[in-house]
Design a protein around this nucleic acid. Structure first.
Lengths: 151, 151
DNA sequence: GGTGAAAAACATAGGGT
DNA sequence: ACCCTATGTTTTTCACC
Protein backbone atom coordinates (compact mmCIF):
# COMPACT_ATOMS: atom_id res chain seq x y z
CA UNK A 1 0.00 0.00 0.00
CA UNK A 2 2.41 2.65 1.17
CA UNK A 3 5.90 2.51 -0.17
CA UNK A 4 9.03 3.41 1.77
CA UNK A 5 9.85 6.76 0.17
CA UNK A 6 6.21 7.85 0.37
CA UNK A 7 6.23 6.99 4.06
CA UNK A 8 9.30 9.12 4.62
CA UNK A 9 7.78 12.03 2.73
CA UNK A 10 4.61 11.77 4.80
CA UNK A 11 6.63 11.70 8.01
CA UNK A 12 8.64 14.75 7.02
CA UNK A 13 5.55 16.74 6.11
CA UNK A 14 3.74 15.62 9.24
CA UNK A 15 6.62 17.00 11.29
CA UNK A 16 7.14 20.14 9.19
CA UNK A 17 4.19 21.02 7.02
CA UNK A 18 5.90 23.96 5.34
CA UNK A 19 9.02 22.09 4.34
CA UNK A 20 10.00 22.98 0.76
CA UNK A 21 10.01 20.39 -2.01
CA UNK A 22 13.66 21.18 -2.49
CA UNK A 23 14.43 20.18 1.10
CA UNK A 24 12.18 17.14 0.88
CA UNK A 25 13.94 16.02 -2.28
CA UNK A 26 17.32 16.21 -0.59
CA UNK A 27 16.15 14.30 2.45
CA UNK A 28 14.62 11.42 0.54
CA UNK A 29 17.17 11.38 -2.26
CA UNK A 30 14.99 12.12 -5.29
CA UNK A 31 14.69 14.99 -7.73
CA UNK A 32 12.42 17.88 -6.86
CA UNK A 33 9.88 17.04 -9.51
CA UNK A 34 9.65 13.39 -8.47
CA UNK A 35 8.96 14.45 -4.90
CA UNK A 36 6.43 16.99 -6.05
CA UNK A 37 4.61 14.34 -8.02
CA UNK A 38 4.60 11.94 -5.07
CA UNK A 39 3.26 14.57 -2.72
CA UNK A 40 0.40 15.28 -5.12
CA UNK A 41 -0.41 11.58 -5.23
CA UNK A 42 -0.31 11.34 -1.45
CA UNK A 43 -2.75 14.23 -1.30
CA UNK A 44 -5.06 12.60 -3.83
CA UNK A 45 -5.01 9.26 -2.05
CA UNK A 46 -5.95 10.91 1.22
CA UNK A 47 -2.71 10.00 2.97
CA UNK A 48 -2.15 13.74 3.29
CA UNK A 49 -5.48 15.35 4.05
CA UNK A 50 -4.28 18.90 4.27
CA UNK A 51 -1.92 21.24 6.02
CA UNK A 52 -2.48 23.28 9.14
CA UNK A 53 -0.69 25.71 11.40
CA UNK A 54 -0.82 24.48 14.97
CA UNK A 55 -2.28 27.29 17.05
CA UNK A 56 -1.46 27.83 20.71
CA UNK A 57 -4.73 27.88 22.65
CA UNK A 58 -3.60 30.08 25.49
CA UNK A 59 -2.04 32.63 23.17
CA UNK A 60 -5.30 33.25 21.34
CA UNK A 61 -7.52 33.51 24.37
CA UNK A 62 -8.84 29.93 24.39
CA UNK A 63 -7.06 28.52 27.44
CA UNK A 64 -9.78 26.08 28.47
CA UNK A 65 -10.01 22.69 26.76
CA UNK A 66 -12.49 19.99 27.70
CA UNK A 67 -13.85 16.65 26.56
CA UNK A 68 -17.61 16.41 26.44
CA UNK A 69 -19.31 13.01 26.29
CA UNK A 70 -22.80 12.87 24.83
CA UNK A 71 -25.64 10.54 25.70
CA UNK A 72 -28.80 10.79 23.58
CA UNK A 73 -31.92 11.49 25.61
CA UNK A 74 -34.24 9.92 23.06
CA UNK A 75 -32.67 6.60 22.04
CA UNK A 76 -34.93 6.42 19.02
CA UNK A 77 -33.82 9.78 17.59
CA UNK A 78 -32.15 10.02 14.20
CA UNK A 79 -28.42 9.56 14.29
CA UNK A 80 -27.31 12.94 12.91
CA UNK A 81 -25.69 14.34 16.00
CA UNK A 82 -22.50 15.44 14.27
CA UNK A 83 -24.35 17.62 11.83
CA UNK A 84 -26.34 19.20 14.63
CA UNK A 85 -23.17 20.14 16.41
CA UNK A 86 -20.81 20.99 13.57
CA UNK A 87 -21.93 24.62 13.45
CA UNK A 88 -20.56 25.23 16.95
CA UNK A 89 -17.05 26.33 16.13
CA UNK A 90 -15.78 25.84 19.66
CA UNK A 91 -16.19 22.11 19.01
CA UNK A 92 -12.88 21.13 17.52
CA UNK A 93 -13.47 17.41 17.09
CA UNK A 94 -16.32 14.90 17.21
CA UNK A 95 -15.81 11.17 17.66
CA UNK A 96 -18.44 8.46 17.54
CA UNK A 97 -17.42 5.95 20.18
CA UNK A 98 -18.18 2.49 21.53
CA UNK A 99 -18.97 2.83 25.19
CA UNK A 100 -21.53 3.99 27.67
CA UNK A 101 -21.76 7.28 25.81
CA UNK A 102 -22.27 7.78 22.09
CA UNK A 103 -19.99 10.68 21.19
CA UNK A 104 -16.97 12.44 22.55
CA UNK A 105 -16.37 16.06 21.64
CA UNK A 106 -13.25 18.08 22.16
CA UNK A 107 -13.97 21.72 22.83
CA UNK A 108 -11.94 24.88 23.39
CA UNK A 109 -13.33 27.97 25.10
CA UNK A 110 -12.08 31.14 26.75
CA UNK A 111 -13.62 30.75 30.19
CA UNK A 112 -15.65 28.43 32.44
CA UNK A 113 -18.77 30.43 31.78
CA UNK A 114 -18.22 30.12 28.03
CA UNK A 115 -18.03 26.37 28.63
CA UNK A 116 -21.30 26.52 30.51
CA UNK A 117 -22.94 28.36 27.64
CA UNK A 118 -21.51 25.97 25.07
CA UNK A 119 -22.80 22.93 26.98
CA UNK A 120 -26.26 24.45 27.01
CA UNK A 121 -26.04 24.96 23.24
CA UNK A 122 -24.91 21.39 22.71
CA UNK A 123 -27.72 19.97 24.81
CA UNK A 124 -30.27 22.10 23.05
CA UNK A 125 -29.00 21.44 19.54
CA UNK A 126 -28.68 17.67 19.85
CA UNK A 127 -31.10 16.68 22.62
CA UNK A 128 -28.39 14.96 24.63
CA UNK A 129 -27.14 14.91 28.17
CA UNK A 130 -23.48 15.78 28.62
CA UNK A 131 -20.62 14.78 30.86
CA UNK A 132 -17.62 17.06 30.83
CA UNK A 133 -13.99 16.42 31.69
CA UNK A 134 -11.86 19.55 31.97
CA UNK A 135 -8.28 19.45 30.71
CA UNK A 136 -5.82 20.80 33.27
CA UNK A 137 -2.72 20.67 31.11
CA UNK A 138 -1.55 19.14 27.87
CA UNK A 139 1.84 17.44 28.22
CA UNK A 140 1.77 16.71 24.51
CA UNK A 141 -0.67 16.75 21.63
CA UNK A 142 -0.79 16.30 17.86
CA UNK A 143 2.29 14.17 17.69
CA UNK A 144 2.73 12.99 14.14
CA UNK A 145 1.88 9.32 13.71
CA UNK A 146 4.73 7.09 12.66
CA UNK A 147 4.00 6.49 9.00
CA UNK A 148 5.39 3.05 8.26
CA UNK A 149 5.86 1.57 4.84
CA UNK A 150 3.85 -1.50 3.99
CA UNK A 151 4.58 -2.15 0.37
CA UNK B 1 -3.34 40.92 22.90
CA UNK B 2 -4.14 39.68 19.41
CA UNK B 3 -4.89 42.24 16.80
CA UNK B 4 -7.41 41.85 14.00
CA UNK B 5 -5.06 41.29 11.05
CA UNK B 6 -2.94 38.89 13.09
CA UNK B 7 -6.08 36.93 13.93
CA UNK B 8 -6.99 36.69 10.25
CA UNK B 9 -3.50 35.54 9.35
CA UNK B 10 -3.63 32.87 12.06
CA UNK B 11 -7.01 31.70 10.82
CA UNK B 12 -5.83 31.46 7.24
CA UNK B 13 -2.74 29.48 8.19
CA UNK B 14 -4.72 27.23 10.51
CA UNK B 15 -6.98 26.37 7.60
CA UNK B 16 -4.24 26.16 4.97
CA UNK B 17 -0.81 25.70 6.45
CA UNK B 18 1.01 25.85 3.12
CA UNK B 19 -0.60 29.06 1.93
CA UNK B 20 2.00 31.37 0.37
CA UNK B 21 2.81 34.73 1.88
CA UNK B 22 1.75 36.29 -1.37
CA UNK B 23 -1.74 34.80 -1.05
CA UNK B 24 -1.89 35.69 2.61
CA UNK B 25 -0.94 39.27 1.80
CA UNK B 26 -3.73 39.55 -0.73
CA UNK B 27 -6.31 38.09 1.62
CA UNK B 28 -5.51 40.39 4.50
CA UNK B 29 -4.71 43.43 2.39
CA UNK B 30 -1.09 44.06 3.27
CA UNK B 31 2.22 43.87 1.43
CA UNK B 32 4.05 40.57 1.31
CA UNK B 33 6.83 41.73 3.57
CA UNK B 34 4.48 43.10 6.21
CA UNK B 35 2.68 39.75 6.30
CA UNK B 36 5.93 37.88 6.44
CA UNK B 37 7.03 39.95 9.39
CA UNK B 38 3.75 39.37 11.20
CA UNK B 39 3.89 35.63 10.66
CA UNK B 40 7.37 35.52 12.14
CA UNK B 41 6.15 37.42 15.16
CA UNK B 42 3.17 35.08 15.56
CA UNK B 43 5.58 32.17 15.49
CA UNK B 44 7.83 33.77 18.09
CA UNK B 45 4.92 34.56 20.38
CA UNK B 46 3.73 30.97 20.27
CA UNK B 47 0.45 31.82 18.57
CA UNK B 48 1.67 29.65 15.70
CA UNK B 49 3.45 26.66 17.19
CA UNK B 50 4.38 24.95 13.97
CA UNK B 51 3.00 23.47 10.80
CA UNK B 52 1.90 19.92 10.11
CA UNK B 53 0.45 17.81 7.35
CA UNK B 54 -2.72 16.11 8.50
CA UNK B 55 -2.30 12.40 7.88
CA UNK B 56 -5.22 10.05 7.15
CA UNK B 57 -5.11 7.24 9.69
CA UNK B 58 -6.80 4.60 7.57
CA UNK B 59 -4.61 5.33 4.57
CA UNK B 60 -1.41 4.62 6.49
CA UNK B 61 -2.54 1.44 8.19
CA UNK B 62 -3.60 2.94 11.52
CA UNK B 63 -7.38 2.63 11.29
CA UNK B 64 -8.05 2.13 15.00
CA UNK B 65 -8.23 5.18 17.26
CA UNK B 66 -9.03 5.04 20.98
CA UNK B 67 -9.10 7.16 24.09
CA UNK B 68 -7.38 5.62 27.10
CA UNK B 69 -8.05 6.98 30.57
CA UNK B 70 -5.41 6.38 33.23
CA UNK B 71 -5.84 5.90 36.95
CA UNK B 72 -2.66 5.64 39.05
CA UNK B 73 -2.45 2.47 41.09
CA UNK B 74 -0.17 3.99 43.71
CA UNK B 75 -1.69 7.37 44.61
CA UNK B 76 1.58 8.41 46.26
CA UNK B 77 3.69 7.85 43.13
CA UNK B 78 5.59 10.67 41.50
CA UNK B 79 3.60 12.63 38.98
CA UNK B 80 5.70 12.02 35.87
CA UNK B 81 3.25 9.91 33.92
CA UNK B 82 3.59 11.86 30.67
CA UNK B 83 7.33 11.28 30.53
CA UNK B 84 6.84 7.58 31.17
CA UNK B 85 4.46 7.33 28.25
CA UNK B 86 5.93 9.78 25.74
CA UNK B 87 8.22 7.17 24.21
CA UNK B 88 5.22 5.15 22.99
CA UNK B 89 4.75 6.63 19.56
CA UNK B 90 1.26 5.24 19.14
CA UNK B 91 0.21 7.71 21.83
CA UNK B 92 -0.64 10.82 19.90
CA UNK B 93 -1.76 13.05 22.75
CA UNK B 94 -1.70 13.16 26.54
CA UNK B 95 -4.01 15.33 28.62
CA UNK B 96 -3.96 15.80 32.38
CA UNK B 97 -7.61 16.07 33.39
CA UNK B 98 -9.87 16.91 36.31
CA UNK B 99 -12.14 13.95 36.91
CA UNK B 100 -12.27 10.44 38.23
CA UNK B 101 -9.24 9.58 36.15
CA UNK B 102 -5.96 11.47 35.98
CA UNK B 103 -4.98 11.38 32.32
CA UNK B 104 -6.57 10.83 28.97
CA UNK B 105 -4.48 9.54 26.09
CA UNK B 106 -5.39 9.46 22.44
CA UNK B 107 -3.87 6.50 20.66
CA UNK B 108 -3.77 5.18 17.08
CA UNK B 109 -2.98 1.57 16.24
CA UNK B 110 -3.33 -0.82 13.30
CA UNK B 111 -5.40 -3.57 14.96
CA UNK B 112 -7.24 -4.58 18.11
CA UNK B 113 -4.39 -6.80 19.13
CA UNK B 114 -1.95 -3.91 18.71
CA UNK B 115 -4.23 -1.98 21.04
CA UNK B 116 -4.08 -4.82 23.55
CA UNK B 117 -0.29 -4.80 23.41
CA UNK B 118 -0.14 -1.03 23.74
CA UNK B 119 -2.39 -1.05 26.79
CA UNK B 120 -0.10 -3.60 28.43
CA UNK B 121 2.87 -1.35 27.70
CA UNK B 122 1.09 1.68 29.14
CA UNK B 123 0.15 -0.14 32.32
CA UNK B 124 3.66 -1.48 32.77
CA UNK B 125 5.41 1.80 32.00
CA UNK B 126 3.28 4.01 34.23
CA UNK B 127 1.83 1.67 36.89
CA UNK B 128 -1.72 2.66 36.10
CA UNK B 129 -5.00 0.99 35.40
CA UNK B 130 -6.62 1.86 32.08
CA UNK B 131 -10.09 2.34 30.70
CA UNK B 132 -10.40 2.37 26.94
CA UNK B 133 -13.01 3.87 24.66
CA UNK B 134 -12.76 2.81 21.04
CA UNK B 135 -13.50 5.35 18.33
CA UNK B 136 -15.96 4.02 15.73
CA UNK B 137 -15.81 6.95 13.35
CA UNK B 138 -14.62 10.52 13.28
CA UNK B 139 -17.23 12.88 11.82
CA UNK B 140 -14.72 15.72 12.15
CA UNK B 141 -11.41 16.43 13.79
CA UNK B 142 -8.71 19.11 13.98
CA UNK B 143 -11.02 21.92 13.02
CA UNK B 144 -9.09 25.13 13.26
CA UNK B 145 -10.09 27.21 16.29
CA UNK B 146 -11.69 30.53 15.54
CA UNK B 147 -8.90 32.97 16.25
CA UNK B 148 -10.62 36.13 17.42
CA UNK B 149 -8.98 39.50 17.81
CA UNK B 150 -8.86 40.94 21.28
CA UNK B 151 -6.80 44.08 20.86
C1' DG C 1 8.28 6.45 -12.11
C1' DG C 2 12.07 8.90 -13.00
C1' DT C 3 15.19 13.20 -14.69
C1' DG C 4 16.53 18.00 -16.01
C1' DA C 5 15.80 22.56 -17.57
C1' DA C 6 13.11 26.91 -18.20
C1' DA C 7 9.52 30.18 -16.88
C1' DA C 8 6.79 31.95 -13.46
C1' DA C 9 5.87 32.69 -8.79
C1' DC C 10 7.63 33.23 -4.30
C1' DA C 11 10.62 34.27 -0.15
C1' DT C 12 13.67 37.17 2.03
C1' DA C 13 16.55 41.08 3.22
C1' DG C 14 17.56 45.99 2.99
C1' DG C 15 16.62 50.72 2.74
C1' DG C 16 13.15 54.33 2.80
C1' DT C 17 8.65 56.54 4.49
C1' DA D 1 4.58 49.32 11.24
C1' DC D 2 4.40 49.39 6.65
C1' DC D 3 5.86 49.62 1.59
C1' DC D 4 8.93 48.87 -2.35
C1' DT D 5 12.65 46.95 -4.78
C1' DA D 6 16.21 43.71 -5.84
C1' DT D 7 18.08 39.18 -5.49
C1' DG D 8 18.19 34.38 -4.92
C1' DT D 9 15.24 30.32 -4.23
C1' DT D 10 11.32 27.56 -4.96
C1' DT D 11 7.45 25.92 -7.45
C1' DT D 12 5.52 24.23 -11.44
C1' DT D 13 5.21 22.54 -16.00
C1' DC D 14 6.92 20.01 -19.84
C1' DA D 15 9.65 17.27 -22.95
C1' DC D 16 12.25 13.24 -22.60
C1' DC D 17 14.18 8.68 -20.67
Amino acid sequence: MLEDIDARIANELAADGRCSYTDLAERVGLSVSAVHQRVRRLEQRGVIRGYAARIGGEEIGLPLTAFVSLTPIDPAAADDYPSRIAHLRQVEACYSVAGVESYILKVRVPTPSALEALLAQIRAAANVSTRTTVVLSTPFEDRPPLVASQA
